[in-house]
Amino acid sequence: MVASISARKSVAAAVSYFKHMAEDEYYTGQGEAEADGEWDGRGAERLALEGPVSKADFEAALNGHDPRTSTRLTQIGKSHAPGWDMTFSAPKSVSVMWALSSPAERVRIEAAHRQAVRAATTHLEDHHAFTRRGKGGAIREPVAGLTIARFHHHTSRDLDPQLHTHAFIFNLAPRRDGSWGSLVSRNLYKAQKDAGAIYRAHLANGLERDGHAVERHGTSFRLAAIPRDIERAFSKRRQAIESAADTYGYRTAKGMELAALRTRQAKRPRERAVLFQAWQAEARTLGFDLTRARQQQAQIGARTRHGPMPGHEARTQSPARALPSVQQMISAIAQASRTSSSMQGLRISLRQRPGERDTEHER
């Protein structure tokens, strides 16, 4: 699902959520976590919240307080959720493109993703954010802004590339007269599909402007240079969920949630450089070369515009082959790095011998 929303039902649950969100799935070589997130929304601006999100500021806003002055802005009672997590996930082809691209290209892809998330949350802020006032909350009115903490993550629980952003929307919003109130949650849930479509449209347009060939399908899209069999190979989390659903006979949306819980593994932080090495090694094992694929897409585009180019034929996709898990690849890379002072020129054999089994999902 490209955009999903779920409530944090208590302040304690939301504080636990913050600790989880602030730890990205990969780390720098010095063992330090990536950026802890960033403030967004006109509500955050009114509270002078900008830059990285600290635990103290996050917890103060959860409790309905101004983080700067400790003034109570609104009452967060037991019957009110302190906030909602709206998650925006890039299509798998975008995440794979990001993982296999050069560092400079990765920066541009991630920037397009973040700008698309901002466009979607701004749309929520402008059109779907309402508060109540008066006796029994009888009066409903649009808010003057939202208070949002965004956390940018990059991997799935199975250590595949997965660009996604958690936008935590606090139940704390300014009214146009300067007072503060809680949000009407129903409007946020109803806007989920709309927000996802806006995110996808902005992301597709941004990537297309940057030179990527985009295939659109209704309100969805994919990057043409990433074949579907490669997408599937980098979707181990999805495959695990689908396998569990088949095993237990789950068919409904609720059933798929149960399948996701049954297959959920603890997050396993890894160093950034080792993850990129593993993803690129996996692509080589699949026989996929991104530079060649993008060149072929450029040729296809030229033929579409100007007619066939002599001597060029469309690429035929090869079937997906059995692969070792990302965890096994990371272990191979780590072993090689211990026997060499440099990763430069590293060559690793990752092909499985006949009879070997991938036990990633058996542990």
Results as ranks from 00 to 15, higher is better:
R222D: 08
Y248K: 02
G43Q: 03
E32M: 14
W39E: 04
Q344K: 15
D36M: 13
G64M: 01
V184M: 11
L258H: 14
K135L: 14
R200G: 03
T316V: 10
S10L: 01
I226C: 04
R237A: 12
V53D: 10
E38K: 13
S101Y: 04
S16F: 08
Y27K: 15
H306P: 01
A244H: 09
R351A: 13
A173S: 10
R292M: 09
L146M: 13
G41I: 04
E242K: 15
H164Y: 03
A129F: 09
I76S: 01
R114F: 07
E356T: 09
Q239I: 06
G134E: 00
T263R: 14
Q352A: 11
R175F: 11
I198D: 03
F88K: 00
E313G: 11
T291M: 04
A204V: 05
R363G: 07
R237E: 10
K254L: 15
R114Y: 09
A225H: 09
A320F: 03
G136H: 09
R232C: 11
H153K: 02
W39K: 00
S220D: 13
H127C: 13
D289V: 04
P82M: 01
F130D: 06
D160W: 06
A225D: 04
E362C: 10
D210Y: 06
G249K: 04
D36P: 15
E105T: 12
E59D: 11
L172M: 01
G287W: 01
Q265Y: 10
G178F: 13
A3N: 06
H128M: 02
T155H: 12
P82K: 01
A120C: 00
F288L: 03
F151D: 06
S93E: 02
Q295R: 12
D194K: 08
N187H: 10
D210W: 03
L261R: 15
A332C: 10
F288R: 03
A120P: 06
S101K: 04
K92L: 05
P67R: 03
R106P: 03
A116L: 03
H127D: 13
A60Q: 12
R216G: 13
G136D: 05
L100D: 02
E141F: 02
D194F: 00
A12G: 07
G178A: 10
E257Q: 15
P161V: 05
A293S: 13
W84N: 02
I109P: 00
T252Y: 05
I76D: 06
L223C: 01
